[in-house]
């Protein structure tokens, strides 16, 4: 699956580039992220759990490696995410260009998606992915803003806050909804990585 899009940040490329490499910035963009750590040179590992609607989805573990880094112009991101409902792996090429005091980030992700999320969520994944990418990146933008001006910090990223009532874990045959969740969840994973 190819996801190709772009996003404009309000900061110059150097700031955006550094911000995106900071796990805290990324994690702040997404509720449900328990952990996102820099575990080696350009290697991040994380765990997340996201909830949408009445369903709490399964946990996902994510490994990201950055390669071909040309600061502050581009990097390749190798993604390996696994969860109970499937997996996503592949490479995202991310490039930054300065524009009017901001940065246009262009990204092109060639992802292999597998498991239930592919077999049932496929038709939703691309559009949901694009939508969620945009929302997530907006959150990243805000996060960078907080880093830049800590006093003006806005708590959390309400855009992505989703209700999570204490319904039991996904029921056996409630897959339909689970699939939707997982589709969205994977989109979130991608957002997280970007």
């Amino acid at each position: 699956m190819l996801i190709e899009s772009e996003f404009t940040f309000d900061f110059p490329p150097e700031v955006v580039y550094e911000g995106l490499l900071d796990p805290d910035v990324l994690a702040s963009a997404l509720p449900g992220t328990d952990r996102l750590e820099l575990v080696g040179e350009d290697r991040y590992e994380g765990e997340m759990e996201a909830s949408v609607g009445p369903v709490t989805a399964a946990r996902f573990s994510v490994v990201v490696e950055l390669k071909e880094k040309v600061r502050p112009e581009s990097f390749d991101m190798h993604v390996d995410g696994k969860g109970k409902a499937g997996f996503v792996n592949g490479i995202a090429r991310v490039a930054f260009e300065e524009t009017d005091g901001g940065t246009v980030m262009k990204y092109r992700a060639d992802l292999q998606v597998g498991g239930r999320v592919a077999s049932v969520g496929q038709r939703l994944l691309e559009s949901v992915g694009k939508m969620m990418s945009k929302q997530g990146l907006e959150a990243v933008n805000r996060s960078i803003m907080e880093r830049q001006a800590p006093t003006a910090a806005v708590a959390g990223s309400t855009d992505l806050e989703v209700s999570s009532p204490s319904w039991p874990p996904a029921t056996r045959k409630e897959r339909l909804r689970l699939f939707l969740v997982v589709a969205i969840l994977l989109a979130l994973v991608m957002v997280l990585l970007l």
């Binding site: 592919a118 077999s119 496929q122 038709r123």
Partner: peptide, 14 residues
């Protein structure tokens, strides 16, 4: 199927 041999329409919705 996609090029990774993942079946993309495994339900009666698709």
């Amino acid at each position: 199927f996609d090029e990774g041999a993942q079946l993309l329409n495994a339900s009666f919705m698709d």
